[in-house]
Every structure is written in structure tokens, then in C-alpha cells.
Write a protein that binds this DNA or RNA. Structure first.
Length: 465
RNA sequence: GACCCCAUCGUCUAGUGGUUAGGACACCGCCCUCUCAAGGCGGGAACGGGGGUUCAAGUCCCCCUGGGGUCGCCA
């Protein structure tokens, strides 16, 4: 069985790079009927891991990723790690090192001066003497001194490191007894039964260290897939400064979860020329071996385009639900479908969408000055007043095509063109010179309120002169 | 600096020795048009450089260059 995992450190939120590897891991597990596990890497004491886990679960929930089983917290597993440290100590595969931090720093400075690689020199590896007083030792693992460590990476292919220039006897337990990252990662992955590790390629050079631990403990080494990082538009590693790295930030900006997932999966992975993927299709097609070797830059135009695509194509009910996030509830509006269909091709984000809906369903409190100056000059107001009078003669007008029929008849009778009237109506209805087709707008607003809004604009114009 | 990884339009990518190097976003032009969009049609735009191998190289090999990552008692 394929078992994958997502193992974030608790930074308080889920960033998009993390979501991408989580998505890949999720898809690969689901495609194979396997398991997708979640583990919080909180061995660094101080931080609040519960809060971080909640943030991740919230983000997962938003985009529709589900993990199997309970969330594992490394902070709750220290006893397990300690027993493995002891095991290594007992078998002579690890040892106590009494070198102080000051001595270690001095060694590094010296090595840098000689332009050598900074590394622990192994001075306590075979130490049998009396340990110095007052130094709490760290535990170091015995790493191979020479030879090579190589593995086949699902993304990069065969990767080989020379032990002498990648490895040293690295610390697996600090002087306070707490275990370190490269040690606990391998223990947890092994104990959780993880068969495929999909993670960022910033971990590629950690892998040989972890392989040392796997081998020392006799664990089976999983298959690794190191996915290239997401770069910012300048080609550098994506950082908080590049904005909206928090997944939930995208919701606040009006992006749909479908958009984000589609965007992320297509960044560094492809399935022929296909651009649009449903979650089902992602599950059917995704294979980590098809992930690109090279890093890819974050491109917000494509993200926006995807969002417009999903806004155009998702069911109206779904969009109505999304609008509520921005405080616009039209679920009980008798023209809700018409509202959605009139606006869905114009909104790039749900946030924009909400603002547009708001503009239609509320009476304009102000009129765009530029629009008024440009379109309500000459005899525009006279035409609008005649239109109002004609409207009053009707008992009601039901829908968009009826409004169109009525309006065209009116224009023909007066010898006018739609151009002579459209912008005035638009300003009266929504207060600006931009909106969907006026006939759709009129139908949505409804016969009685249409008359009121036209009257309001007329009164407003009169009050100016 | 050492080690590792990477390299096709501005961006995301297709390409697995023989292609007019394809698609998408963005950009530009035209059409449609009651505004703004959307849509339709069309356009410009790429194999980083140099050596090999081969009848044939974007595709294989080497070097260079460029970019990225890692070198913690962080994860």
C-alpha cells in the first residue's frame, strides 16, 4: 500500500508551497487507494502546535483535502525518539559528544578560514577518557566516513552524494535531550509506514543524513520525490514578502479553492496540453514521476485566469454560497440565478463579484461623477424622462426579453437609438457607466424598483441645476 | 567557498533522435457590441553558449555560463 504524508512545521499557517506538496501527496495516496497522513513537526519546543495544526486543517478543509487517521504531533513522541537514541547508543552507532557550543563555533571559524567545509571533526567519536565536567553532552550518530550514498529520486532520478563531503557525525539529540529534525523525521516516517516521501527539494541534501539514520536503525528506506520549489516572479525562492503565501489569504482575496488547486497542480506538472483539472481528474492522472525537474515561477495572471474560468463555469448555487463569505447573501433573492448569470463573466474574483452584486441589489447612494458628466449631458435626461413615462403606462414588465422588446419599441417610436438611452439607464440603475446588459439589469431590479431608481436619478439631476 | 539540483516563447508547459518546435496565461490587432467584460478570429514571441556522438540533436555525452538549494544543539 502506498502511504504518503505531509509534515509541516508549525508556522501558524499553511503556505502555498506546502499546499502543493500536500496536494501531490494526497493525490498520489488517493490514486493508489493508499493513505495520506498528517504530522506536525513541532520538536522545537516553544511554538503552539495546536494552533498551527488548526490552521492547516482549516486550509485543508477549504480546499477539500482530507488526511487519514489522527494528526501526529512530534512533541508528544519524545519518549519514542529517546528509546531510539538509546538503542543507537547501546549498539555503538551513536555516541556522546562533550564539545561545547563555543568549541564548535571556534572549529567552524577555523574551517571557514581555511576555506574548508564546516563539519564536526569527530573528536569524541572514539572517546574513552574522562568526560569534561560541566558539559551536558549531545548525542551524535556515526555517519560513514567515506563511500557514497545514492538513491533514486522519483523526480530527479539517481542522486549521489560523497559521504566525505556531505556527511559528518551530526547531532541526533541536543544536550537537553530533545531529538533533532533529521532523526525524528526518519523515525516517524518509518513508524508511520510511509512508503513515499513527497517534499520540497530543499530537503534533497538532508536525504543522505536521513538515509544514515534509516540504515543505522534497520528501517526500510522509502521512495523519495523531491519537488522543485516555487519561485517568485523574480526567480527567487518564494517568501512572505511576495504576498499571499498563506493559503487562506487566497480565500480572502476572492479566489476559489478549485482555482488554487488547479493552479498549484499545473505548476511543475502537466498532462499533455490540459489546463483545467477537476479534483477527480487530478486523482486520475497525477503521478509524482511526471513532476518537472526544474523550479517554476509563480504567475499570478494565470491564477487569475483560472479563477475567472471557475467563476464562469461553477454552478450558480455554489457561487451564491461563496458570496456569503463577503457578506452578500442572495440565496433568497427571487432573481438569484439571473444575478449570477449576468455577472459571472465579468468578475475575476468572488470579492469583485460580491461588490458587483451589491451594486445591483442596492439603490445607488451616489452617482459616478465622470459618468454623469459624460453621459447625462444634452437631451439625455429628457429621453430618460420620456422613457419613465412610457414605463408608467405599462402595468408591469416581467423579464429581460420583455424589457428589451418594450425598450426597442419605445426607441423606434421616438426615432432614437439604444446608444441614446443605455448609459442613462445604467447610471440610474447602478450609479455607474459599467454594468451587464441593461435589459438583464432591469429584469433583475424589477419593474417597480426600476421606476423608482430612474425617478431618483431624475430628482438628483434636477437638484443640481 | 564546498556539495547537490536545474536550464524550450516574458510566464506555466508539450516534446522521450527526423516536428513548419505545439498548447495555455499575458501582450498586440480585428470582429461582435447598450458600457465593461466575456466570446470569436488573427499576430509577434523560445530550444543560454561551445564542443562532441549520429545520416540526423531541443532531445544523448562533455565543458562553460547562468539560476536555485543545502551546508545549525531550526525544521
Amino acid at each position: 500500500m502506498i502511504v504518503t504524508r505531509f509534515a509541516p512545521s508549525p508556522t501558524g499557517y499553511l503556505h502555498i508551497g506546502g499546499l502543493r506538496t500536500a496536494l501531490y501527496s494526497f493525490l498520489w495516496a488517493r490514486r493508489n487507494g493508499g493513505k495520506f497522513l498528517l504530522r506536525i513537526e513541532d520538536t522545537d519546543l516553544a511554538r503552539n502546535s495546536k494552533e498551527a495544526a488548526e490552521a492547516i486543517v482549516e486550509a485543508f478543509k477549504w480546499v477539500g483535502l482530507t488526511h487519514d487517521g489522527d494528526i501526529l504531533y512530534q512533541s508528544e513522541r519524545f519518549d519514542i525518539y529517546k528509546s531510539y537514541v538509546q538503542k543507537l547508543l547501546d549498539t555503538g552507532k551513536a555516541y556522546k559528544c562533550y564539545m561545547s557550543k563555543e568549541e564548535l563555533d571556534a572549529l567552524r571559524v577555523e574551517q571557514m578560514a581555511k576555506k574548508e567545509r564546516t563539519r564536526y571533526d569527530g573528536r569524541y567519536r572514539d572517546f574513552t577518557g574522562t568526560p569534561p565536567l560541566g558539559v551536558e553532552p549531545v548525542i551524535r550518530i556515526k555517519a560513514p566516513l567515506d563511500g557514497q550514498i545514492s538513491f533514486v529520486d522519483g523526480v530527479k532520478g539517481e542522486v549521489t552524494f560523497n559521504a566525505k563531503d556531505m556527511l559528518d557525525d551530526f547531532i541526533i539529540a541536543r544536550s537537553d535531550g530533545t531529538p533533532t529534525y533529521n532523526f525524528v523525521v526518519t523515525i516517524d516516517d518509518a513508524l508511520m509506514g510511509v512508503t513515499e516521501v513527497i517534499r520540497g527539494d530543499d530537503h534533497l541534501s538532508n536525504t543522505p543524513k536521513q538515509i544514515v539514520v534509516y540504515e543505522a536503525l534497520g528501517f526500510k528506506i522509502p521512495r523519495f520525490h523531491h519537488v522543485p520549489m516555487i519561485l517568485n516572479p523574480e526567480g527567487k525562492k518564494l517568501s512572505k514578502r511576495d504576498g499571499a503565501t498563506d493559503v487562506m489569504e487566497y480565500q480572502k482575496e476572492g479566489y476559489l479553492s478549485e482555482t488554487l488547486l488547479n493552479f498549484l497542480i499545473r505548476l511543475g506538472w502537466s498532462h499533455g496540453d490540459q489546463e483545467i483539472f477537476s479534483l477527480e481528474e487530478m486523482q486520475a492522472f497525477f503521478d509524482p514521476c511526471d513532476i518537472n525537474k526544474s523550479a517554476s515561477a509563480y504567475n499570478k495572471e494565470k491564477l487569475l485566469w483560472l479563477n475567472t474560468h471557475y467563476i464562469k463555469t461553477l454552478p450558480a448555487e455554489r457561487l451564491i454560497k461563496e458570496l456569503k463569505f463577503f457578506g452578500v447573501d442572495i440565496s433568497l433573492h427571487n432573481k438569484k440565478i439571473e444575478i449570477i448569470d449576468a455577472l459571472r463573466e465579468r468578475a475575476k474574483t468572488i470579492k469583485e463579484f460580491a461588490a458587483m452584486v451589491e451594486q445591483i441589489i442596492t439603490v445607488p447612494q451616489a452617482y459616478d461623477e465622470g459618468a454623469v458628466a459624460k453621459f447625462l449631458s444634452g437631451n439625455a435626461m429628457d429621453i430618460l424622462e420620456m422613457y419613465l413615462q412610457a414605463l408608467h403606462k405599462e402595468s408591469t414588465i416581467e423579464n429581460a426579453s420583455a424589457f428589451e422588446q418594450f425598450t426597442k419599441a419605445f426607441l423606434e417610436e421616438k426615432g432614437l437609438k439604444l446608444k441614446d438611452l443605455a448609459q442613462s439607464i445604467r447610471i440610474a440603475m447602478v450609479g455607474s457607466a459599467v454594468s451587464p446588459s441593461i435589459f438583464e439589469i432591469l429584469a433583475i431590479i424589477g419593474y417597480d424598483k426600476v421606476k423608482q431608481r430612474i425617478q431618483k436619478l431624475i430628482s438628483y439631476k434636477r437638484s443640481l441645476s
